[in-house]
């Protein structure tokens, strides 16, 4: 049996928000590890805290209490600039609303993170075209996001998330704006990437299509982990 190394860990995480003097507890006593090769979903009804937990694990927010560790490093000790660098080099994001840069073509959107990483032009162009091919969008590299369907845009977003060769991809409700047929194609693509390239995925979703494909489902309710279903890595 091979011991799996956790990429991301939440240790005793609590998150509270204060709005006009009223404190709201979004997460409480969260302990969660995500290991390499996992295809895991944070599940639960709206307001259960799944997106909050995904944001914390994606270094987009800091916990009120507890630690988030990325490859063993406590993100709470990092400056905003260092957090930026960790996101750039170790994390990939897929958002609900695709969120591609509208003034860039599909290929340029994929190249964006590589350019931030300092990858030379030729190399990033070649990789962008390869990634487009891997998400079945070969030949659409010059299209702007507004010229593409929702499903095509989300596949570009997947390719963009993969472009930086991240340790883990965090996907927040990636199928929420897609019809079921397109959602299935997208999820199957991600599963294939998970199997063939050992790409680690952590979803936040209440879409049954996502949950039935996730090998592990972490159910949240009222900001606490209610139950965990399934195993970890493939």
């Amino acid at each position: 049996m091979t011991e799996t190394t956790p990429i991301l860990q939440a240790i005793g995480v609590r998150k509270t928000y204060e709005t006009r003097g009223v404190e709201t507890q979004a997460l409480s006593e969260i302990d969660l590890s995500v290991a390499e090769g996992e295809f895991t979903a944070l599940a639960g009804p709206s307001g259960s805290g799944k997106t909050t937990l995904l944001n914390l694990m994606g270094a987009l927010d800091i916990p009120t209490q507890g630690e988030i560790r990325l490859d063993g490093e406590n993100l709470g000790n990092l400056t905003p600039a260092e957090l930026s660098r960790r996101r750039l080099h170790k994390l990939g994001f897929i958002f609900q609303a695709y969120n591609l840069i509208p003034v860039f073509s599909a290929a340029e959107n994929i190249e964006f993170v590589m350019e931030l990483q300092g990858v030379p032009h030729e190399e990033r162009r070649t990789r962008a075209l390869e990634l487009l091919e891997s998400v079945d969008l070969a030949g659409l590299g010059d299209k702007r996001p507004l010229e593409m369907s929702g499903g095509q845009q989300q596949r570009v977003a997947v390719a963009r998330a993969l472009a930086s060769r991240p340790r883990i991809i965090l996907a927040d409700e990636p199928t929420a704006n897609l019809d079921s047929k397109t959602a299935i194609r997208l999820l199957d693509l991600m599963l294939e990437l998970n199997r063939s390239q050992t790409t680690t995925f952590l979803f936040s979703s209440h879409d049954p299509l996502v949950l039935e494909r996730a090998r592990r489902r972490v159910w949240l309710r009222d900001g606490v982990i209610d139950r965990v279903e399934g195993g970890a890595a493939a």
Binding site: G58, L60, P80, A81, S84, R85, R87, L88, H89, F93, F95, A97, N99, I101, P102, F112, V113, L116, Q117, R160, S164
Partner: peptide, 14 residues
């Protein structure tokens, strides 16, 4: 505003 949030999330510095 949304776009800036996304590119910040992707690793662009403020």
């Amino acid at each position: 505003k949304r776009e800036f949030g996304v590119v910040l999330a992707l690793g662009l510095r403020p």
